[in-house]
Design a binder for these strands. Structure first.
Lengths: 113, 113
DNA sequence: CGGAATCCGGGATGATACTG
DNA sequence: CAGTATCATCCCGGATTCCG
C-alpha cells in the first residue's frame, strides 16, 4: 500500500467522511441538494457542494438539473458508485457489529495504569 | 448516516489514510516498527506512532515488546481487525478495478467547456 | 433552491532533535 | 530500534455573504 499511488488516493477520496455520507444517502435513489443537507446532520453547505463536485468529477454521481422555478437538482449514484456503496455497507456493518468492542478496548486502554 | 454517531466516527477512524496502510501492511503477520516505516512510503515517524497508538487503543492492533537489545516491537492484527481488513480489501479491489474509469471521468469533467 | 466567493482560525501534519 | 518532545506550518473546513 504505497501512498501516492492512484489506488491509495482513490480510497482516500471515496472513504472521506462526507463522501461516505453522501453515497449512503443517495443509495436509495435520486436525492436533492436540500434533502442531502437535511439528511447529513452537521455538514456545511460549503462542504456539501465541494464533496458533491468531487464525487461528480470522479464519475460517482450524476447531477440532473430540472429547469423549473425554483430550480431542482437531483443527484444519483452511477453503477460504479453503487458497487462502492455495497462495499462501504460491509465496512459500516462491521463498525456496527464492533462498536461495543471498540468502546471497551478504548476504556481499558485509557484506564491502564 | 448521521455524523456524530459512533459508527460514523469509527468508520472515519479506520478508513483514515494511514490506518488503512498499516492494516494492510500488518495483515500478513506481525510486523516491526521499522518495517512499517519502510513499507509505508511517505509516512512520518510521528504519524506512524500516532496511528499505531490509536489502532492499538481501539483494539485493532496488539503491540508486543521483546525485551532484547536492541528493542524489538511487533504489531499484529486482532481478529476484529482481520475482519476489517477483509472488508477493506473489497474497497481496494473496487478502486483497482475502477481506477481507469475514475481517471477518464475526471478528464472528461475537467475538459468540459 | 442551489449554489459561488471570500475570509480566517485551529487542528492535523511535517521537520527536527533528543533518548532509553 | 523504537520511540518522545517541541516547534512551525499549512490547509481543511466553518461562517458569512451574495447571486441567478
Amino acid at each position: 500500500m504505497l501512498p501516492g499511488c492512484t489506488v491509495q488516493e482513490l480510497v482516500d477520496r471515496v472513504a472521506g467522511k462526507w463522501s461516505v455520507c453522501i453515497l449512503v444517502a443517495a443509495a436509495d435513489g435520486p436525492i436533492r441538494f436540500t434533502e442531502l443537507e437535511r439528511a447529513i446532520t452537521g455538514i456545511s453547505r460549503r462542504m456539501l457542494t465541494l464533496t458533491l463536485r468531487n464525487l461528480e468529477r470522479d464519475g460517482m454521481l450524476v447531477r440532473t438539473v430540472y429547469p423549473t422555478v425554483p430550480p431542482r437538482v437531483e443527484y444519483s449514484l452511477t453503477p460504479m458508485a453503487q458497487e462502492l456503496h455495497a462495499a462501504l455497507l460491509t465496512i459500516i456493518t462491521w463498525a456496527e457489529r464492533h462498536r461495543a468492542d471498540v468502546a471497551q478496548a478504548r476504556e481499558r486502554y485509557d484506564t491502564r495504569t
